[in-house]
Design a protein around this nucleic acid. Structure first.
Length: 353
DNA sequence: CGTGTTTGACCAGCGC
DNA sequence: GCGCTGGTCAAACACG
């Protein structure tokens, strides 16, 4: 386990950002997200654009109580998800995470994330299923959609490394897993989300002094991956990009056994509680209403299923921080809530009897 | 000893 | 075709 080995990460805390955001100009990250309630025009646009309930607009205030409710530190600077993005299936290799890079991206073209300079963001498409990748150039052919150690036969899959890679089906483009990125204010890179991850790579990020780490869910049958990188513009911001969907419950070892405080000390807690935001423009009736659901979809198999059927997945950027759970959230149907608390790590629902 | 990280090499896609 | 870049592999390593 990594346990207390994140101090090296602190090495990244250098003021190295000389990056000229001429092209990125502006930010998807809200420069001053804490302006609770001070709904900037951009915010309004964002919210309205995504048809977000009005309560969203005013849900900037009760972070503390919220955090408390979740047993989290009320320290706002600790770890806060204040922006998230659903990438959908397409991705331009060049811009890749450019939008995440901090400046504010404009992941142009086919259904990526478009960010306006004023932190007003919009997103198009972002098919979760990545069904028709007509023009999609999935760069990773060898990246097997299947969890490599597909249970039993596992081992040989890796086989002779490079030479005899897996035979890629010509003409068949690998479907891109839906991606879901969000930014979190955190001092540590790897946010604890209840699942177990194994780091399998690290690469330097272009135009950024911070490396990008690649993680894979350690569960055999699960092929979910995630990338973690620190925003070069705001070192205190960690960008986490989930790819794929967990097809298994959260590791039992973690369920109900996580000590919030301990986790808090060693990891940034992946806290959906600090999210607020916009629903996907795709206005899918079955789609989630607010970011928490997106998170849950990513975090829970059951929830994620809902997304698959829709075809059009969620697409949207969540910009939040110091935000309270929408009250409406607490009004979720009992069954849904029950489901959530059943599958979501206890940390998500710190509700002591 | 099992599990996870580090790290250099490799691969594929894309732009020039 | 070449070089760049993002993403992945896997041996070596570290740690409890």
């Amino acid at each position: 386990m990594s346990d207390h080995h994140h101090e090296p990460k602190d090495l990244y805390y250098h003021d190295l950002f000389q990056y000229d955001h001429g092209q990125l100009n502006g930010g998807m990250i809200m420069n001053n997200p804490k302006v609770s309630g001070s709904s900037s025009p951009a915010y309004n646009n964002l919210l309205q654009g995504f048809d977000v309930p009005s309560y969203m607009n005013t849900s900037f205030t009760e972070y503390n109580s919220l955090a408390t409710a979740f047993g989290l530190s009320s320290s706002p600077s600790d770890h806060e998800v204040f922006s998230s993005i659903d990438e959908g299936s397409h991705q331009k290799p060049v811009d890749n995470l450019g939008y995440l890079g901090g400046g504010g991206g404009h992941v142009s073209s086919d259904g990526e994330v478009h960010v306006t300079p004023n932190s007003s963001v919009s997103s198009s498409s972002a098919e979760a299923g990545a069904e028709e990748d007509s023009g999609n150039k999935s760069k990773k052919d060898r990246q097997q959609p299947q969890p490599k150690g597909s249970s039993e036969e596992g081992g040989d899959v890796h086989s002779p490394k490079k030479s005899s890679k897996i035979v890629k089906k010509k003409g068949e483009k690998k479907q891109r897993e839906p991606r879901f990125a969000f930014m979190t204010k955190s001092e540590v890179d790897h946010l604890e989300d209840g699942y177990r991850w194994r780091k399998y790579g690290q690469k330097a990020v272009k135009n950024s002094p911070y490396p990008r780490s690649y993680y894979r869910c350690t569960t055999q049958k699960c092929g979910v991956k995630k990338r973690v990188e620190r925003s070069f513009e705001d070192p205190s911001t960690v960008i986490t990009t989930y790819e794929g969907q967990h097809n298994h419950p959260i590791p039992a070892t973690l369920r109900g056994s996580i000590n919030i405080n301990a986790a808090h000390h060693h990891h940034a807690l992946f806290s959906p509680s600090s999210m607020y935001a916009s629903a996907a423009p795709t206005t899918s009736s079955s789609g989630p209403s607010f970011p928490q659901e997106y998170l849950f979809q990513m975090a829970t198999p059951q929830m994620m299923m809902r997304n698959d059927g829709g075809g059009a997945g969620p697409g949207g950027i969540y910009s939040s921080r110091n935000v309270n759970f929408p009250q409406q959230y607490h009004q979720l149907p009992a069954d849904q809530y029950g489901l959530l608390q059943d599958v979501v790590p206890s940390m998500f629902f710190k509700h002591e009897p």
